[in-house]
Amino acid sequence: MKGYLGIDVGSVSTNLVFLNEGGIIREAIYLRTQGQPIATVQKGLKELADRLPSTVKVRGAGATGSGRHLTGVIVGADAVKNEITAHAVAASLLVPGVRTILEIGGQDSKIIILRNGVVADFAMNTVCAAGTGSFLDQQAARLNIPIESFGEIALQAESPVRIAGRCAVFAESDMIHKQQMGCGLPDILAGLCEALVRNYLNNTGKGKEILPPVVFQGGVAANVGMIKAFEKALGLPVQVPSYFDVMGAVGAALLAREAVARSGISRFKGFGVADTGFKAGSFECSGCANLCEVVEITEQENIIARWGDRCGKWSGAIGKEEKIS
């Protein structure tokens, strides 16, 4: 079997997928990043290698997510792309004709507007993480319910309570207030979903023309309560693709396929990367008053990448390969 590898390293989860040459998803792995991107990517690669037949040939690899540059140098990625492009590419493949993508992940939310199959506009949440996966996670833990059953419980609501969703801290105090008043758990959870949707549409989605087909993806799309809240607020059906939680990785794999089609040869270092010793260290540059924190990635004592400097003194010092991102 031949195919393409896509890796999405986000703040909360690290996802890996393997697409065959026809663009069909053969394997998908969802892991928690837990603040250790290198170890998690290695663990994911090992798991993927075990699941795939030993005759598998990786024709190309792509990386996306906030850890894309790190992942890119570790695995030898052919495409290192931002998550907006990756999500748009993946949704276009799985839901042809999609015109609006709602994406809510661990610590960010995005809206992507496509017209005629091309991204026409996009927005990402800026300073506030209210309404993203981490907040739902936290509230589920506080209410002592597993995050997996959050949505199911919310669906049982008869009359969702109104919760102030502007800010995660105020939303929490408002929820506690509603609990003390004696409102039922399903009504509170459904109210929270509606508040988050309101917040999303008023901030990330502000001024965007939301037209069907609408696709909802990212980890939070697992929550049926959120899906229902979106449908209610938009008055439109909302589709959740079957691989909603690994869409970034699917996009990265597709972008890798494109990149290799252009370059003809892959840089992928092979699954052996899982057992190679990588180290990430950082130091503060004292060259000027900016005191940049420079990150240095070493592969078996060889420095393979540096970044974090504003001026390019350190990142430019090691033989820079041609631009791939």
Partner: peptide, 25 residues
């Protein structure tokens, strides 16, 4: 003073992709 460089670069990359795709199509 709270703006992060990584967030800006992600948006710039996405914007450049958007423009390139538009131009191509």
């Amino acid at each position: 003073e709270h703006s992060g460089e990584a967030g800006m670069v992600t948006r710039l990359e996405a914007f450049m992709d958007l423009l390139a795709q538009r131009k191509e199509s």
